[in-house]
């Protein structure tokens, strides 16, 4: 199986980027279930920019900017205005699905068109440099959370926000920054999906990857380093299920293949020996 490693690595990139962003946001105590919407936004913006004749690199940065904007919107509603994060995320998913579909219609016409895009340049193993960066994030974040003062403050905002406030930090401010970071990474993940994997955009291109990334964060039990094996396992399971089907093993119902990544995450949680739980203040408003 020559291609399976490369396929797994490439499929991991969007998931890893989005999951790394969400991990930071959740460690800060907030929760965005609308990553699917942010990834879709990034995917679309990258498509629109590259389709307009700009370079794939410009498309990637445009998607990062769109992700930042999405993160800012989430921070405004769910953190600053303290609206319910679940509701904000749900509305955001709908808004992003509708807006990107409408934008696509404006570009590709009412009945669509198959528009192929140039790819991000490959650096190594079929990965663009953004892909390499994705694999560096877990390590960087591990150091960030364990060795740096901002990392400790951010983590504390998700565990004991009152104490963080007592030290003179704005918990809402910390979480808003985390939301910006998370949005940027999810946007980049969408861009990689468009530019390096799909080479085009269609309505609903992300096909549930935002929710998978959410699962990966839980799977990794909010530990940055654990993101790597968790993502590789989920992406590997996806790549493997295509192999199994292609190998002609039709005894397994294909619904099992579809549910495989989620089942895997849940099973890992059920048998996990680590007792590290979720950030204690996850989903509570900033004091």
């Amino acid at each position: 199986m020559p291609g399976i490693l490369e396929t797994t690595l490439l499929l991991s990139v969007p998931l890893l980027l989005a999951a790394a962003g969400e991990l930071v946001l959740e460690r800060s105590g907030s929760l965005q279930i609308g990553m699917e919407g942010t990834m879709l936004t990034g995917a679309f913006v990258a498509f629109a920019i590259v389709h307009a004749g700009k370079s794939p690199g410009a498309g990637l940065w445009g998607a990062v900017a769109a992700g930042l904007l999405s993160g800012a919107l989430f921070a405004l509603f769910a953190i600053v205005l303290r609206a319910d994060p679940i509701l904000t995320g749900t509305a955001w998913n709908l808004l992003a699905a509708g807006s990107t579909a409408f934008g696509y219609e404006l570009i590709a016409g009412k009945t669509g068109a198959v528009l192929e895009l140039p790819s991000l340049p490959v650096v190594v193993m079929g990965l663009p440099w953004a892909g390499l960066a994705a694999f560096a994030f877990p390590v960087i974040l591990h150091i960030f959370f364990s060795r740096t003062r901002p990392g400790l403050v951010l983590g504390a905002a998700g565990e004991t926000p009152m104490a963080v406030r007592a030290q003179g930090y704005s918990v809402a401010g910390v979480r808003s920054l985390a939301s910006l970071f998370s949005g940027a990474l999810s946007g980049a993940g969408g861009a990689v999906l468009t530019l390096s994997i799909s080479h085009t955009f269609v309505e609903g291109l992300t096909a549930g990857r935002g929710f998978l990334a959410l699962g990966i964060v839980v799977f990794a039990r909010w530990r940055p380093l654990a993101l790597l094996p968790a993502t590789l396992l989920v992406a590997g399971a996806t790549a493997l299920q295509y192999r199994l089907q292609a190998g002609g093993s039709t005894q397994i119902p294909y619904a099992v293949f579809i549910a495989l990544p989620s089942l895997l995450s849940l099973a890992a949680l059920a048998v996990a020996t680590s007792r590290r739980g979720a950030p204690k203040a996850l989903g509570t408003p900033a004091p």
């Binding site: 929760l31 279930i33 679940i86 549930g208 929710f211 959410l214 699962g215 964060v217 839980v218 119902p253 294909y254 619904a255 099992v256 579809i258 549910a259 989620s262 089942l263 995450s265 849940l266 949680l269 059920a270 996990a272 007792r275 739980g277 979720a278 996850l282 989903g283």
Partner: peptide, 27 residues
């Protein structure tokens, strides 16, 4: 069960279960 004995927040486990149950319908 995941919530009470494994400390997994329901907000996250139930989202994953939604995907599983959607596949259950497919099956």
């Amino acid at each position: 069960w995941l919530s009470e004995s494994r400390g997994v927040p329901p907000v996250l486990s139930t989202i994953l279960l939604n995907l599983v149950f959607a596949a259950a319908v497919t099956w």
